[in-house]
Simulated assay, not measured.
Amino acid sequence: MDAAEGKPTPAAAPSHPHGPPAVNPWSTGLFDCTEDPASCWLTCLCPCITFGQLAEIVDRGSTSSGASGALYMGIGILTGWEFQWIYSCFYRTKMRAQYGLQETPLPDCCVHCLCEPCAICQEYRELRNRGFVMDIGWHANMELQQQQGRGGSAATVPPSMHVDGMTR
């Protein structure tokens, strides 16, 4: 928590490449929609927006929220909204590995298959509770951290690109 601003800081993901053992509890339960009714309504009405935002943060900016949301929507439309949960399940697993979260109350694929909107909302709340401003994306969150004097740790800053004479 940033004491001067009174805002939480985005928590760095563990630096261990395989992630720590899953020992950390989720900050909210799967059915705790009363904690953030606005994101729950948004997820129920248009899950591609909420999913896209959380996917951009989990991917550390390597994919945009628009691209992830569009792919989620495309899979949903093509499969009659029967199998988009398979795509979103991978992000729950990735997020759990990044933050050492427990696989509860069921395995990731079961949570997404049985209660997709609740799973997406829980993941969204988890990232928000870790200090991310969800609607501004990864890069803006990193800029915000730097402006507030926290800088990004090695685990949260996107890698710089350097390829034989080419820099980015």
Score class of each variant (00 low, 15 high):
Gln84Tyr: 02
Pro10Met: 11
Gly152Asn: 13
Asp135Cys: 11
Gly76Tyr: 08
Cys121Ile: 06
Val23Glu: 15
Ser15Cys: 14
Thr9Asn: 09
Gln147Tyr: 02
Pro25His: 08
Ala55His: 00
Cys115Pro: 07
Glu56His: 02
Cys89Pro: 08
Gly52Trp: 00
Ile120Trp: 06
Glu35Ile: 06
Phe83Val: 07
Gly80Glu: 09
Arg130Leu: 11
Val58Glu: 00
Gly151Cys: 02
Pro14Asn: 15
Val157Cys: 08
Gln145Ser: 11
Trp85Glu: 03
Thr79Arg: 08
Gly6Glu: 02
Thr43Phe: 01
Leu45His: 07
Tyr72Asp: 04
Asp2His: 13
Asp164His: 14
Leu101Ser: 03
Ser88His: 02
Gln53Asn: 09
Ile77Trp: 10
Ala13Met: 13
Gly69Asp: 03
Ser64Gly: 10
Arg92Asp: 11
His16Arg: 15
Thr104Glu: 12
Asp32Val: 04
Gly165Ile: 07
Pro105Ile: 12
Glu35Asn: 08
Asp164Ile: 13
Ala11Met: 09
Cys121Met: 04
Ile57Gly: 01
Cys46Trp: 01
Ala4Ile: 12
Trp85Val: 00
Val163His: 09
Met1Arg: 14
Pro47Ser: 06
His139Trp: 13
Phe51Met: 04
Phe132Ile: 14
Thr93Cys: 09
Met166Asp: 03
Cys46Phe: 04
Ile77Val: 14
Lys94Cys: 03
Leu71Phe: 06
Asn24Pro: 00
